[in-house]
Amino acid sequence: MLEGLTMTGSMINRRLLGLLRKESLQILRDPSSIAIAFVLPVVLLLLFGYGVSLDSKHVPIGIVVEQPGAETASFVAAFRQSVYFEPRIYRSLQAGRAALRERRVDGILVLAADFAQRLKGDRDAPIQVIVNGVDANSARLLEGYVQGVWSIWLQRELEARQIPVSVPVEAQTRIWFNPELASRNYLVPGLLVVNMTLVGALLTALVLAREWERGTLEALMVTPVTIGEILIGKLLPYFVLGMGGMVLSVVMALFLFEVPMRGSFWVLAVCSTLFLLSALGMGLLISIVTRNQFVAGMIAILATFLPAFLLSGFLFDIGSMPVVVQVLTHVVAARYFVAILQTLFLAGDVWSLILPNAAALVLMAAFFLGLSRRRLRKRIE
């Protein structure tokens, strides 16, 4: 009896090792798999790390100076010294408005002819601010930056004239987790989720679909190999591929983009494993259902990549979305992994955030892998 069990276990091991070797050779012979796993994440990281920024700096702004003087020169100098603005001087409001219409500037500040007189006297010296509101977010940022530069300049002017400044409330701002306010520190961790989604879901979505199209899966079904062995043989090589791409992305994030890592690497590895298993399960389920590479690829992009890009909180704040869309994000696995990565990189091991999101990934991985096991049967339909 013991000898029979030993022989059976040895045969299972040989079958599984054969399947793993077959799938590994298939990956090595397919340049597209290597490109999606290693080249595409590097390209996306370089593109978003260097080319995409949510920070508004060097914004072209027009300053209309109707009557030049020492006060207006001081005001313009304050904007020249700011990293947020590139001021351009105009002598009339008509010229400034023309520049705004032609998108040569994003906003206009108008200093009226009596600006210096009002500033020296007891009357108010208002400035007119006209902002291009086509991009509402940029318009709000520009308005806030203008108010910041204006308030700092006004305080310096009053101090230079030895005029007492009475401020009943003084705000002392402290920025936690991302004190540099660098959007790169926010974007790069979220982009790791998009990369792992591509590797996990897109590649595995093509695995069984390719086998069905080539007719090799039917030949595999008539062998003694079990469904569990088929699934392990298909998933394990792509799991290794996905984790390799994740390691490469993390190394780039830490050493190339200098994103801080305040959490534990072990927690990062465990949570990455959970998310990759859920992505592999989704891709495998798509592959089993469609049996066509083109259809499987399109469904994988629509069902996994786009939600990971748009509904995960990677680029857009989930709390600002409509209620219906917020509810929909709860079925997107990337939402939970984005929250974990941003917490690990910028805040640390905050267990009250990590554990619930990790539990959600466990449930989603179990659901998709279990459903894939149930849908794949050893019979030709």
Rank of each mutant, 00 (worst) to 15 (best):
V289N: 05
F257L: 03
T304H: 10
L235D: 01
S278H: 12
I163A: 12
G215I: 02
G51L: 07
S320D: 10
R123E: 12
E71P: 02
M243N: 13
A95Y: 10
G245L: 06
A99D: 10
D124W: 02
P356H: 08
L280C: 08
Q81E: 15
A359S: 12
L54V: 04
V207S: 15
L46H: 01
V76L: 13
D349F: 00
L268M: 07
G297D: 08
A205S: 13
W153N: 03
A35K: 00
F255T: 09
T173P: 07
V188R: 09
L355R: 03
V325M: 08
S183W: 00
R373H: 11
F239Q: 02
G96S: 15
K57N: 05
R91V: 09
V350A: 10
I108T: 10
R21Q: 15
G9Y: 13
T329H: 03
S33A: 11
V323C: 11
A77M: 13
D124H: 06
P126S: 05
R377C: 01
D106H: 14
Q293K: 02
G133S: 15
V169I: 14
I354F: 03
V225I: 08
L191Y: 12
Q117A: 07
K234S: 01
V105Q: 05
A253T: 07
A35M: 04
A136Q: 14
P87E: 12
R21K: 13
V222N: 04
S74R: 08
V324D: 10
V76K: 01
C271Q: 03
S278M: 09
P87I: 11
I286L: 13
L16A: 09
F275C: 02
A70P: 00
S166V: 15
T290H: 06
R156A: 13
R80Y: 11
R101I: 13
V76I: 13
N292T: 04
E86D: 14
V194G: 00
P60R: 13
Y186A: 14
Q172L: 14
L141T: 13
Q26F: 07
L346I: 01
V295G: 06
L363I: 15
V350D: 07
I27G: 02
I340A: 07
R80V: 14
R15T: 05
L192Y: 04
T223A: 05
M246Y: 07
D30V: 01
L248E: 14
V199L: 06
S166G: 03
G49R: 09
I232Q: 03
F115D: 01
M282A: 15
I63D: 09
A182G: 15
